[in-house]
Design a protein around this nucleic acid. Structure first.
Lengths: 339, 339
DNA sequence: TATTCTTGCTAATACGTATTAGCAAGTTGA
DNA sequence: TCAACTTGCTAATACGTATTAGCAAGAATA
């Protein structure tokens, strides 16, 4: 066996069988009918193929398909967590699941060990187009870069809402507004009439929406709604609430909610002060302290992002901006207002 | 939003920069010196590349046996866990970390649907070549497939020891034999002379090695060592141990160890019966019940796999079969033999 | 002034496969 | 007998990149 050349090709097979390379390809891909290759020819070629053990080079086969069936996942920090309570994993779980279902592989961009932060991002971005399209998770200060991407015609979907002037950044976000409204209503049903919003209520859309859902609903229902910035000291906030007569704390940031709920617990104020976690209510909860509030449907957001992205890549029509409703979590920290 | 063409090519770049496609390729691959392209031209082309975010199609590059700075990761089940106690994550953490350090991105092969509980490596072969090489995690019954891969000259590293006749499957495994020996010695030092091995002791190398480390050391030290298959009922095993006079249980499977330790606890036999977990002693432990035994150095295995793989890809010489020593875990379940 | 050298680039081709258009020879129909 | 049709195949081209050979214009040399 003179293995002069590295790899057996269709040309070799063709030569051995006395046909053209095209014939070999056609026979292998079921185009033989269409091209009316005779049964004899087909058998002859197949015999050679079997005899030589020829297998088509998968790379060459893929070359003239459209894409590479690759979805990029772009994050601003390493994906795999040290920490137990982990932000990215649920998204990735959903992404992986749906990617698998749709026949895509995932490309995880690791950042470069380059010191300078900017270059780091740049180097990452320079590899972005390796994939057919990309899912961008986290960090909402990147509208410009995303807008550039969109303008360049590169298919991508952000996880987390991104509104910009051009209005055409595709995203899968969470409907904070509605769920916050529902929680305020729920508090109202439980007798609360004075609510305290703990957080900034500005900046990212997700914060603006929470605040808007809160303040609008408070107004609609004729309740009293205050706002206070999150403090280093939970005690300060609790005292402020007690002093003002507020009976529920709506916390923008879940870790604040947890800290506050603990302090409330420690002071045995559970009956007088409720705590609502606007996010991560389930995942941050401890067995001994289950927060009330809501939880992002992260897995579903991941799945939806993959569906949207694949539709964009494959040029199918699709709703490009989707908000999913967070799940409300009935914990122990939202109770009836003490009479 | 343009989206006229699917993917940006060197031809597009060339047109934009007013040069030939060849010039673009040369500049990207360091052939610019050789071809005497002027500094201005180089800069002009690079500017266009940066502006557009062009990246060479990995498939086309692989056709010329060029790398893409891409490491594949193949697992037999989905990577991202539902379960809390998670198998893959620590490996991936190490892999991501080291890949980042070495300037590789990661390609997660998810697209193969799980068939009867696991993914099939051979279904992926076409996709595998997108990556410069691949890390295969888990499942030790895949020697044939791996041998085929190796024969095809595809660079890969298995996590988990794989010995086969050809003897050349590269892997990063755990040195179960040594650590088991040390644990038996430790038990001996604590006064134990009659040990019970709970498990099959056959099948995968990892199991064979544990049994071998156990039985050899028992023989060397002149101890008594029995073996029993793992049972559905922990009670049965415990009674068998008590009846035979064994004072330590060496458990092949960590979840068995946990179940046994719990039962021992429940029966208040802690002083009479020790339990050793040969694997996951730390990660399976509860705050209230810390197992003694050992734990795989999963992160380090991941890092080492990346180092080995990159060496193979880059044609540097490297030890292809590496065993890392698991870490012993001093928990509460291995104590002095009761006098 | 003719020759050689250098500079800066491009044309052409290869990689291995898939696919479309179409050719030559034979067959059928009128 | 000429056109239309069928049969059985091939030529040509595309995919996107890498690489080699070599061309044109100017500079240096003899």
């Amino acid at each position: 066996m003179a293995r002069t050349k590295g790899r057996l090709t269709q040309r070799d097979i063709a030569k051995l069988a006395g046909v053209s390379q095209a014939a070999v390809s056609l026979i292998l891909n079921g185009g033989a009918e269409q091209a009316r290759l005779s049964a004899e020819t087909r058998e002859r070629v197949m015999a050679v193929i079997q005899g030589t053990g020829y297998v088509a080079d998968p790379l060459a086969r893929q070359m003239h398909k459209k894409g590479n069936q690759l979805l990029g996942v772009f994050t601003y920090e390493p994906v795999f967590p040290n920490a137990q309570a982990d932000f990215y994993t649920p998204f990735l779980l959903g992404i992986e699941e749906e990617a698998e279902r749709l026949g895509y592989d995932l490309l995880l961009f690791t950042s470069t060990p380059v010191e300078d932060g900017r270059r780091k991002l740049f180097r990452k971005e320079s590899r972005l187009r390796l994939a057919d399209g990309c899912i961008v998770i986290g960090r909402e200060q990147d509208r410009d870069e995303l807008a550039k991407l969109a303008a360049g015609g590169y298919p991508f979907v952000a996880i987390g809402r991104r509104d910009d002037n051009s209005g055409e950044i595709p995203y899968v976000g969470a409907d904070y507004l509605t769920v916050t409204r529902d929680l305020v209503r729920r508090a109202h049903e439980l007798g609360h009439v004075h609510l305290l919003y703990v957080g900034d209520g500005t900046g990212a859309e997700s914060l603006i929406d929470r605040w808007q859902g809160f303040s609008e609903t408070v107004a609609t229902l004729g309740l009293t709604g205050d706002r206070t910035a999150p403090m280093v000291e939970p005690s300060t906030i609790i005292e402020r609430a007690l002093a003002s007569g507020a009976t529920v704390l709506f916390c923008e940031v879940a870790s604040d909610a947890l800290a506050l709920a603990r302090e409330v617990d420690a002071r045995r104020l559970g009956a007088r002060l409720s705590v609502v976690a606007m996010g991560s209510a389930a995942s941050l909860s401890l067995p001994s302290l289950r927060l009330s509030g809501f939880e992002l449907p992260r897995e579903e957001m991941g799945r939806q992002a993959v569906r949207t992205l694949s539709a964009i890549i494959e040029n199918r029509s699709v709703e490009r901006q989707i908000l999913l409703r967070p799940n409300t979590v009935d914990g122990q920290t939202l109770g009836k207002r003490e009479q």
